[in-house]
Design a protein around this nucleic acid. Sequence first.
RNA 1: GCGAGUGUAGUUCAAUGGUAGAACGACAGCCUUCCAAGCUGUAUAUGCGGGUUCGAUUCCCGUCACUCGCUCCA
Length: 501
Amino acid sequence: MTTVDMKDIVSLCKRRGFIFPASDIYGGINGFWDYGPLGTELKNNLRDRWWKDMVLTPPIGPDGTPLQMFGVDTSIIQNPKLWKASGHIDGFSDPMLDCRETKKRYREDKLIVYKPKDGQGNAIVFHEDAESDEIEKRIKKISKGQSVDNYEKTSLKNIDTTDYENLIGPDTKTAGTLTEPREFNLMLHTFLGATGGEENKAYLRPETCGSIFTNFKNIVDNSRGKIPFGIAQIGKAFRNEVTPRNFIFRSREFEQLEMQFFCDPKDNIKEWFNFWKDYRKNWWLKIGLSDNHLNFHEHTEDDLAHYAKEGVGAYDIEYQFPFIAPGFDELEGIHDRSQFDLSQHEKFSGKKMQYQNLETNEWYTPYVIETSAGLTRGVLALICQAYTVDENRPSGMYMNFHPSMAPKKAAILPLTAKDGHPEVAQKLYLEMREHMVVDLDIKQNIGKRYARQDEIGTPFCITIDGQTLEDQTVTVRERNTMAQERVHLDNVTEYVKKRLV
RNA sequence: GCGAGUGUAGUUCAAUGGUAGAACGACAGCCUUCCAAGCUGUAUAUGCGGGUUCGAUUCCCGUCACUCGCUCCA
């Protein structure tokens, strides 16, 4: 396997207009990226393909009937109670602090402090479950013989941060190694209303699925949703990642392709789960990711998300990104969320989130299988997969995008800038651009123009030459093989179209 | 968030306490040609802020960004 350096990928992305650092002229901003002309096309191609294959023409179910799927596009900001119900607000809002020396991290509320009653000397910090003889021993040692009685016990919250320099951390002997406690909630928040204060706090969604669940009843009641069915959504999501890193892989603003599939708890959940798992992996294969770069990772009991504890399992589809190779990193999760979300929303909203089987009149809370893919991670995977080193061509490499994903489908290149070539080229360009994204490039020599198209992964280059004027044929060059074929002008749009699927 | 490193044209690199160079890319002109990016020319850079200094891209401090290792990832 050839390993591609992320550095080369990042510089190509900037040089050719795929992806730029956000607010580049101001020095960038950690965790945010802008999509340039080609990156936008690529992302749209991936997004549209997902929407088609999931919503417009969803797969045929295991029993041979086409699945019912509904598309929604919900607001990024929702009532904060939604995130309370989903567990996102409480799940990760503890103030934490670090020890600079030992690199350990502590929850503020789990630490207790022994402060000298006379105010002389350092205060000593312990973990809340420290044994009393352990406390006694350590205090004696550090204070050179003083007893616990000379110390008063308090919680870390009562210590002013200006006094932190006099604190001795739980796992060290030196004072002043603890950092100030920091909120570690990973949700981005904002304030609603022009004068919004704390009471008007709202959150930018950390995933798109929350509002899929809250629309469950609308779909059932107003869109004739009959279980089993799915609700799908594409949209932005935001997380205050501790360490945004690896180009667009972990960014604070990203885009998701999410689908929640609601089924009868009496169904064979495992069968549905496997159905989606296989369908989703094959989908990535269809759009050009190679099998040996894809991997299924099954979550163990310990790292299951809070919503997935009850279910039949959780799998990640992982891709072998260059920055982690030979390891893999998550591209899409297929998780059994069981009845967690609908039950939670029923509890918090007081609205019945159940489904009635009208044939049996039986009410139940549906089971949910989630497929949650990162659109922006998908773009990165496509780019990494496509980057192909080839020392035998002028560009030194080419982007081997699947034709259906390539940002530009064809480039029209008159061999010379005179002799009537540009006129023919422009006519063809105006025809073809009605059907696909095409480039018209007239200037400079042909080798240079081929090389440029190779670098951005255009699958077909169409050349108008002397012979075109005689017999109305053009040459079509295929990117990967560089082989050429003569095609009549009347057929060239169809010729390319057929090869984009 | 911690630790280490890096920061010079669009990209990849050079150089210097005293005028910042190249290659590729871009653009213009020439060539009119089917691929080792033809020929000529033009424009473009020391991340940002402060300090030291007669003078800082170079030394120092801060900051921002990127890379690597930790940490985190509902």
